[in-house]
Each structure stands twice: as C-alpha cells, then as structure tokens.
C-alpha cells in the first residue's frame, strides 16, 4: 500500500544509501538467526508468500487505481523476521519490473517491512480480545497508517539538503536560515533546527493529496486482509 514509487535518481544518495545499509543490517541479522534456528520448514512458505504478494499486486480492481499488497497477511502468517525477508524479495522483483527504482529497494523494504511487523504485533495483541477478522482489520489499519506516515517522513527527508542535516548532526553554524527565520546576530538554540527545517520543507500539498488518495487504498487493503484472515480462521483455524 505504502510502497514508494520513486524512480532511480530522484532521492538524494544519502537517503537511499542509508535505506540500503539499514536493510542490509536487518537482513543479515534475520538470515543469521534463521540459519541458526534451522527454520528450514518455513523457508518454502516465505517464497510462496512472496509469490502470493506479487500475484495479489497484479489483480485488477476494476475502476480503482490501486493494487493489493497483502504485506500484513504475510506478517501474520510468517512472523516479523521472515516477513521482512519476503518484503525485501518482493521489492527486488518489483524494482526489476520498473515498479520503484532499484536504489529505493532498501527504503521500500523498511516502509513495507514496518507494515508487516506492526501488522504481526497488532494481530498478536488483539487476537485474544477480538475475533480474528476484527483483530486483523485493526492491525492492518494501524500498520498501513504507520507505514504511510513513515513513507511521508522519507519524502520530507528527501527535501532536506545535506547542510540542513549536518548543521544539527555536527553542530555546524547555520549559514542559510531563510526557511526558519532565525536571527544570526544573536545566539539561539539549535536543537530544534532540523525539525524547523523539516517543517519548512515538507511538501504539504503533496502529502495532503497523497493522504486523500491513500484513504480508499487503506480501506480496501484492510477489508481484503480482514476477509482473508476471517476465511482462514473459518476453514483452518490452526493456521493463525
């Protein structure tokens, strides 16, 4: 749902490189743990759920310009670590098909991986309280909203210049405060500068438009995931 459709060359290098680095670290840890625990039994399931996610994305939904992701469903079935691997592979395949750039695979894995992890945690927490359909719906809704906020955070961060970040990270003196309006003749507290810079450079109209556009997609994905979980709970309750 919140897949970043950024093509290559749009995002600043520091951002996609950081995304790739963080993804590589998480993937290494997950694969190390997987190899150690000998969870080979679940190995084919990861591959199969990757295929299901790719197939779900190709289902036409009539006049609606959306596609399903089923990431939360993968999180519920596989658990957070295996779902993260599945999400990485899905993004790799998608980038090969021109659906998001190859350099954006890391960031996309983090955004959609968050969806899977939150979905799993939400479902595990709510399962004892609600019926499976309700628990899945609430977990999916939370996961999608959070991942979209994260995706918007990335879009906002992409608008920051290198100097904006270095000013706060290293404590360099500001040279350009046109967006925050600080008076450099007097000393001031720099701690909130990055936040101010982010606020000033947030492409508000873009986020407002995309939030409105995302709403039907969120509802659609929530209904579908909840219905599938409900179906699985009815037919084979032991699976969940």
């Amino acid at each position: 749902m919140s897949h970043l459709h950024f093509p290559d060359g749009v995002l600043p290098v520091y951002l996609w490189a950081a995304g790739l680095a963080v993804t590589a670290i998480i993937m290494s840890l997950v694969l190390y743990r997987l190899g150690k625990q000998e969870q080979v039994k679940k190995l084919p399931m990861v591959g199969i759920l990757v295929a299901i996610m790719l197939l779900a994305m190709s289902i036409p939904l009539g006049f609606l310009p959306y596609h399903l992701n089923l990431t939360v469903l993968s999180g519920i079935i596989l658990g957070p670590s295996l779902a993260f691997i599945a999400v990485f592979i899905v993004n790799l395949f998608l980038s090969f098909m021109g659906h998001g750039g190859i350099t954006v695979v890391g960031l996309n894995t983090l955004v959609i991986g968050l969806e899977a992890v939150v979905g799993f945690l939400g479902f595990s927490l709510l399962k004892p309280i609600f019926r499976p359909t309700g628990a899945a719906a609430a977990a999916t809704l939370c996961a999608l909203v959070l991942s979209i906020i994260f995706a918007f955070g990335i879009v906002t961060a992409s608008q920051l210049s290198y100097s904006d970040i270095m000013e706060v990270a290293v404590g360099e003196e500001h040279t350009d405060c046109s967006h925050c309006g600080h008076d450099h003749s007097a000393s001031h507290d720099c701690s909130g500068h990055l936040l101010e810079a982010m606020k000033a450079k947030t492409p508000v109209s873009f986020i407002q438009i995309m939030s409105a556009a995302a709403l039907p997609g969120i509802l659609l994905e929530t209904i579908v995931v909840a219905s599938i979980v409900g179906y699985l709970a009815r037919v084979k309750p032991g699976l969940l």
């Binding site: 993937m27 694969l31 997987l34 190899g35 190995l43 084919p44 990861v46 591959g47 199969i48 990757v50 295929a51 299901i52 790719l54 197939l55 691997i85 599945a86 592979i89 790799l92 395949f93």
Partner: peptide
C-alpha cells in the same frame, strides 16, 4: 547468502505454480 538465493528461487518457482 545461500538462504536468500534459495528463497528467491522458491519465490520464482512458486509464482509460476500459483499463477
């Protein structure tokens, strides 16, 4: 890692089985 390539392989194969 071998494990990751195995999953890639199974994913590709499963795609054609499930499609």
């Amino acid at each position: 890692p071998g494990l990751l390539v195995d999953i890639l392989f199974i994913s590709y194969r499963s795609f054609f089985l499930l499609i």
